[in-house]
Design a protein around this nucleic acid. Structure first.
Ligand code: MN
Ligand code: MN
Length: 558
DNA sequence: CTCAGTTTCG
DNA sequence: TTCACACTGTCTC
DNA sequence: GACAGTGTGTCTCGAAACTGAGCG
């Protein structure tokens, strides 16, 4: 493969500063009207610093920190370190020994260093247990007289704190459109990790149109990160505090969707604590799916069946999506039955099922065991699920995904257009998609086409193609074995709404002896059941005549 | 010493 | 900050 | 056996360095 023979030339010294300046320049050029005075001043002052100072600032501002210990900072390409530090402090880019929070400063000191330090300082060591864990030690020190601890620490250590962090974040946000991506994106191509599609970015395409959105997104990103921390650590007070903060915000319309999604997560979290009314409040402010579903369920289990029936009727009238509609249809009958209203008996939906009694094997999941069994039955096959079908879509529609249409590409490091998962993705590319589907239906060289795309685009970032796990021969097998009208039907449905139809594909792709002889199998072990999106694909397969089944595995004794 | 989780770096 | 599954308890058939 | 709720592993670029904890 081509990537094996790429020689990696070492990156030029100070490459990170070069990239940082590229980022700043890109933003300055594009967003001059949106930068505030403070940010423009940052740029002016920064670019006047010596190269060593600039390098040191970028080195540290891109690290986690927030504190750094001067005695631990050393970079071969910054020989005059002390001089750079002085310069940065004088110019206001570093604070030296600012007293932020003790735990943050203690974080820069390893446990052995900390014990060593405490042993020399009887004023502190008499109050702490030196054999405690580091976490405890930090907590104990933090509970002592703060000014005294700071003074003692500063006698032994010098702490650096890069300033203008928020300014740098605003620049990053303006460049990437998010805070997940970092400066390291710039070198991924240089070092051969991956490539980015060279799509066209027009001068007038900007991720942000208003300063307000930049600031609102910045604030949201911070709050949301904290929120997720609270959700994952089961910290009720923290989640409540952030939730209430979020409720008080009045962000730009473009941010409302993000807040609403967070409200749903908060509601679910509060339900776990049986805080029904609080959860309902967040659902009411959300409005996104599954907020109404959760509202109905909470009402139902807290004796408000009548209200839930009214909301269920509203949902059925105007469902948010297929998932919500299916829920409402099912749950309405359940509630009617409960309150003694006439209801329709729910008929169980059945799908073609193959039952297999197989032996459990150490280290193999149920999908692999089922696949083994099918292979013994004479099938050829592999584990497919969403990655394979997504990958196939990504390869066959590559140029359409990266088509240069207005306002979808904003920086050189995107894995797809901004509207990839929006409802009007297809609408905006109607003709191209239509034409491509005709090609898929009729091109008798499709396996060649897919090989070419695979080779040409190998390791190029694409939201749908996971190169690490993609297997060209599997794509080729599908293209050769699955009847084209089936392929077209599946791909067309995906293109309709990539958010809804990128998931729910069956686990296994199985092939018989002759072309056209194939099967999609969703493996279900004991206790597992079909998910709503899996059922939706099955109904679609049924309609089209695509062969599929549920493979129910039970464990044989022995 | 090993081991696992995190952070840095190119 | 997604998707699918494992595991649990409850209810219904 | 269906359904609901809860929790977990997985996605991350990968190698190397660093850190803290537990073990013998
Ligand atoms: Mn699966
Ligand atoms: Mn499965």
């Amino acid at each position: 493969m081509a990537e094996d023979i790429i020689e990696r030339t070492p990156l030029p010294e100070g490459y990170y500063l070069h990239n940082f300046l590229k980022l700043l320049d890109f933003v300055n050029e594009r967003y001059d009207d949106m930068l505030i005075e403070n940010e423009k001043q940052f740029y002016k002052t920064f670019t006047k610093l010596s190269e060593g100072a600039q390098r040191l600032y970028v080195r540290l501002v891109t690290r986690k920190g927030p504190y750094f210990r001067l005695d631990k900072v050393a970079y071969a390409e910054i020989p005059e370190l002390d001089q750079a530090v002085d310069e940065l402090e004088l110019a206001g880019f570093f604070a030296v020994n600012p007293r932020l929070a003790l735990p943050l400063a203690l974080h820069t000191i390893t446990k052995p260093e900390l014990v060593d330090f405490l042993k020399d300082v009887p004023e502190l060591s008499e109050f702490v247990n030196l054999s405690a864990s580091k976490q405890q030690l930090v907590a104990e020190i933090a509970s002592l007289e703060e000014a005294q601890v700071w003074a003692l620490l500063e006698k032994r250590f010098t702490f650096l704190l890069p300033l203008y962090q928020e300014t740098v974040e605003i620049y990053r946000l303006l460049f990437f459109g998010n805070l997940e991506q970092e400066l390291s994106e710039f070198i991924l191509e240089d070092i051969g990790v991956l490539r980015y599609e060279p799509y066209e970015i027009r001068d007038e395409d900007r991720f942000f149109q208003q300063r307000q959105v930049v600031e609102d997104l910045h604030a949201f990103t911070y709050a949301n990160a904290e929120l997720w921390d609270g959700l994952q650590s089961n910290h009720l007070e923290k989640v409540m505090a952030i939730g209430n903060w979020m409720l008080e915000q009045d962000p730009h319309d473009k941010l409302k969707g993000k807040y609403r999604r967070s409200f749903c997560h908060i509601g679910r979290f509060l339900e776990k604590f049986k805080l029904w009314e609080e959860a309902l409040g967040f659902y009411q402010h959300s409005g996104l799916h599954p907020a109404r579903e959760r509202t109905v369920r909470v009402w139902e289990k807290t004796g408000r069946e009548e209200a839930s029936l009214v909301l269920l009727a509203e949902i059925l009238e105007n469902p948010f999506n297929e998932d919500e509609a299916e829920f409402a249809a099912m749950f309405a009958e359940k509630v009617k039955k409960k309150v003694g209203q006439p209801y329709q008996k729910q008929k169980r939906e059945t799908f073609p099922t193959v039952s297999k009694s197989l032996e459990k094997e150490e280290g193999l999941n149920v999908e692999a065991i089922a696949l083994n069994s099918y292979q013994q039955d004479g099938y050829e096959g592999f584990y497919a699920e969403n990655l394979l079908w997504g990958g196939l879509f990504g390869l066959l529609f590559w140029d359409i995904i990266f088509m240069p249409i207005p306002n979808v590409f904003f920086n050189p490091f995107q894995r797809g257009p901004k509207d990839l998962f929006s409802e009007n993705f297809r609408e905006k590319r109607t003709e191209q998609i239509k034409k491509r589907l005709v090609e898929v239906a009729s091109n008798n060289q499709l396996s060649v086409t897919i090989r070419q795309c695979y080779e040409e685009k190998f390791n190029t970032a694409n939201y749908f193609v996971s190169w690490k796990r993609a297997d060209l021969e599997q794509f080729v097998k599908i293209v050769e074995w699955v009847p084209r009208e089936h392929l077209v039907a599946i791909l067309s449905r995906m293109a309709d709404n990539l958010r809804e139809f990128r998931s729910g594909f069956p686990d296994l792709m199985l092939f018989g002896k002759e072309k056209g002889d194939y099967l999609l199998a969703e493996v279900k072990g004991p206790g597992d059941q079909l998910r709503p999106n899996q059922k939706r694909w099955f109904r679609f397969f049924q309609e089209i005549g695509i062969p599929y089944n549920v493979t129910k595995v039970s464990w044989a004794d022995g």
